[in-house]
Design a protein around this nucleic acid. Structure first.
Lengths: 228, 228
DNA sequence: CGGATGTTGTGATAAATTTCACAATATTAG
DNA sequence: CTAATATTGTGAAATTTATCACAACATCCG
């Protein structure tokens, strides 16, 4: 079908998951895989995988499955990770430091090429081969290094300000780790990762769902119950 | 209505966002807020907020809005964060170290009380007041410290093994940062955060959506198309 | 007091997403 | 070649999620 309009964000996340799984499968030496087996491995329905892929083209062979290598290449192209992206990191604290050292970024084509902070004690220091710069140099560096993506690992108090600076320099994609409600203008893509929110969801589950599940199980036991 | 069955996971994530925003609003000194204004701040529709809340009860006052403090307390209870949770961290690498130091966890009631690693050079060292332990001590520590949540910050190669160990010790909630397809048994809640996936979504946007949007904008310009 | 305004909670409706069902087609074994 | 089997791609159906529309009621202002 190859109709790129209106692809759900959730579908894009899944494509990334498919790609990672295909990488594992390739390492295992498998050359062909069916949507059914891929789905089993990552916990999705086979039809979900096929439907997701069908938005972008036909990649499988009927009666056979998908060539692992080919599908991986295809998804990489769809995601735009068949190239390198230069990334700026704002914030050289604990989290920023960990992100700078995170091997998964480089492995998957994302190179952090600049780090910014407003702490005078850190500016000028070299981490992982990169000199920490003052935020005032941001505009110049973004242009010089062709930076397209910004990662926010600063305190929530200054996060919006840094986001504004980045977008005013032409950065159109922001990954925000600061626990704050950030707004961006039209045409800028923002993804928020709130680490505490992730734990809060688990807390909800531990507090509520587990009980409900126990109760449901008890009921099923009692009525042998077709619980709709 | 207060019917806790079948609450969408997305709704729980939103509740956490509401709660964080309410914290900010409280700090600003506001005592009452409408769903409309809250929605504006965090980028959701007012009806979405009201609908989410309606699953758990009635917290607002007609014609007036919500008492910020009361709503925050109510959501905290719903999420189960009106208490402290003890958390185990597996993996004392860069990322583990950053998570251990992350202030947002403690602020929101999550205390990392134990850290595990299999690197002999790290075991026995003290970080942020916590002695890094060998994984062999996991079962004992989980029981002694009443640990209910596990955070996985180990390499993808050993992540499944650590998850299995944790769940076999009775941990029923896992936050996984390892870029691997983890499976858990019935009754265990797993949340995955793949940092590279987040960037891959941004890459997709930069590669595809931006073009589409440009095209749409051009069309709107031509038809003078009454967009919001 | 009374009308204008503001806001919630929710049933109804719309939109989006996922799953089903199956035609089409490739492969394998005899 | 033929029958049995495997698997894709996709229209249709089912399900889930989000938005709308509005009754109910509180508050404000004159």
């Amino acid at each position: 079908m190859s109709d790129k309009r209106k692809i759900a964000e959730a579908a894009i996340v899944r494509l990334s998951v498919y790609n990672r799984a295909l990488g594992e499968i390739e390492k295992e030496g498998l050359e062909i895989i069916s949507s059914d087996e891929l789905g089993d491995r990552i916990g999705y329905h086979a039809t979900q995988i096929r439907k997701d892929l069908s938005c972008f083209g036909e990649f499988g062979e009927v009666g056979k499955g998908y060539f692992v290598r080919d599908l991986r290449d295809a998804i990489s192209r769809i995601l735009g990770v068949d190239r390198k992206w230069n990334v700026a990191l704002a914030g050289a604290g604990h989290l920023g430091s960990a992100l700078l050292a995170y091997p998964g970024f480089r492995q998957r084509g994302f190179n952090i090429v600049a780090v910014f902070d407003n702490d005078l004690a850190k500016i000028g220091k070299k981490w992982e081969g990169i000199v920490i710069q003052d935020t005032s140099e941001l505009a110049k560096t973004v242009k010089e290094q062709d930076i397209r993506i910004g990662i926010i690992a600063v305190s929530p108090q200054v996060s919006q300000e840094i986001v504004d600076t980045l977008t005013s320099c032409g950065v159109r994609a922001i990954l925000n780790f600061a626990p704050a409600s950030i707004t961006v203008g039209e045409g800028v893509e923002l993804r928020n990762v709130d680490l505490a929110t992730e734990l809060e969801c688990l807390s909800y589950f531990l507090t509520n769902e587990a009980e409900v599940r126990t109760e449901v199980l008890r009921k099923i036991k009692n009525n042998n119950g077709e619980g709709g």
